[in-house]
């Protein structure tokens, strides 16, 4: 089918006019200045080139979905940085502990100075939510980074060498994939003797490793068989530069998109682990997933205790997902000009 590609001289009216004028001038001078006519190869303008990343960024800047996602993510990161400064109270101090009555009033309600009330230990809920963003960001980012590093290593090994190394790595990855993620988390918590924030991160990271590895290997293999890698081989480029300059960078697109999406799932997974009691037992430093997990005891009487951290998680996860999806669209070769 005919490629309805954008008109090459399209662009906004003014720019087009300029083009026509310059072409017309070139045409008028044709006889005395033959080098200004359309060369046999066609015209090439003098502007510096725009790389694919740059042109993807130009498209992204206009994309409403991406802007919405990016706004949420940026706000979240800023909040995580400044939370201790803006939090009205110390999130670990039981300021409302005096109001907590195990039988009649386990959760202190909203009151002046404490707009969302306190938790079961009498700590200010708002301050804990605000400061909790920091730990949540840690979990999301470090779990993703861990998964990414592991996945990149395995995927590059498999995709770059192929053959029996590929088979071996992929069998290992398959075994990892076949273990349920919760079981994996249980095991890691057990090995670590005592669950902590880092066991949560490690558990989630290890679960992500095979996903990243498979993804990268698949796209590395596609690159391996692409003409431009064949061209580099034919040119006599050494094997290492072929892998690291040609195959890996071109294979990274889907992995970067996946990483953005994984930040969201990592935050949700951390919440799930906490909910099942596999999270960080030390609740002096708040984290949204852990707060959600702690709220389950009081879910019937005091649902707001679960609602606030859950809402925060949903909004942040949505932010990362929106960003990831629009990145995927922007990097899709089919949507390229």
């Amino acid at each position: 089918m005919n490629d309805p590609r954008p008109h090459p001289r399209g662009g906004l009216g003014a720019r087009k006019k300029e083009r026509i004028d310059s072409l017309a001038r070139a045409g008028a001078r044709r006889d005395d200045a033959p080098d200004t006519e359309v060369a046999s190869a066609g015209t090439v303008d003098d502007r510096a080139g725009v790389s694919l990343v740059a042109s993807a960024w130009r498209r992204l800047r206009r994309n409403v979905v991406f802007l919405a996602g990016a706004t949420i993510v940026v706000l979240f990161v800023i909040l995580a940085l400044v939370a201790p400064l803006v939090a009205p109270h110390d999130p670990s101090a039981g300021l409302l502990l005096s109001q907590v009555r195990q039988q009649t009033n386990p959760i202190p309600g909203p009151q002046p100075g404490f707009p969302l009330g306190g938790d079961q230990a009498g700590r200010d809920l708002l301050s804990r939510l605000l400061v909790g963003s920091r730990q949540t960001l840690y979990v999301g980012v470090f779990a993703t980074l861990g998964g990414l590093i592991g996945g990149l290593t395995l995927g590059t090994l498999a995709g770059a060498f192929g053959g029996w190394i590929d088979s071996l790595v992929m069998r290992v990855v398959d075994v990892m994939l076949s273990i349920p993620s919760l079981l994996m988390a249980f095991s890691i918590a057990a090995i670590a003797a005592r669950p902590s924030q880092w066991t949560v991160i490690l558990a989630i990271a290890i679960v992500q490793v095979p996903i990243f590895a498979r993804l990268l290997r698949g796209s590395m293999l596609a690159q391996r068989h692409s003409d431009h890698v064949l061209a580099a081989r034919a040119l006599g480029v050494k094997p290492a530069p072929i892998v690291f300059r040609h195959m890996l960078p071109n294979a990274l697109g889907p992995v970067i998109v996946q990483a953005t999406l994984v930040v969201a799932t990592a935050i949700i997974d951390a919440a799930a682990l906490s909910f099942l009691g596999l999270g960080n037992p030390d609740d002096r430093v708040p984290e949204w997933g852990q707060m959600l997990g702690a709220a389950q005891t009081y879910l019937a009487g005091y649902p707001h205790l679960a609602f606030y951290p859950a809402a925060c998680i949903i909004v942040v996860a949505l932010g990362f997902t929106l960003m990831g999806e629009s990145l995927r669209e922007a990097l899709d070769p089919k949507s390229r000009r």
């Binding site: 008109h7 090459p8 001289r9 087009k16 083009r19 026509i20 072409l23 006519e37 359309v38 060369a39 046999s40 190869a41 066609g42 015209t43």
Partner: peptide, 11 residues
């Protein structure tokens, strides 16, 4: 050959 390519078209 015909010089240039369709990219050189003017409206």
């Amino acid at each position: 050959p015909v010089p240039g390519s369709v990219a050189d078209n003017i409206p």
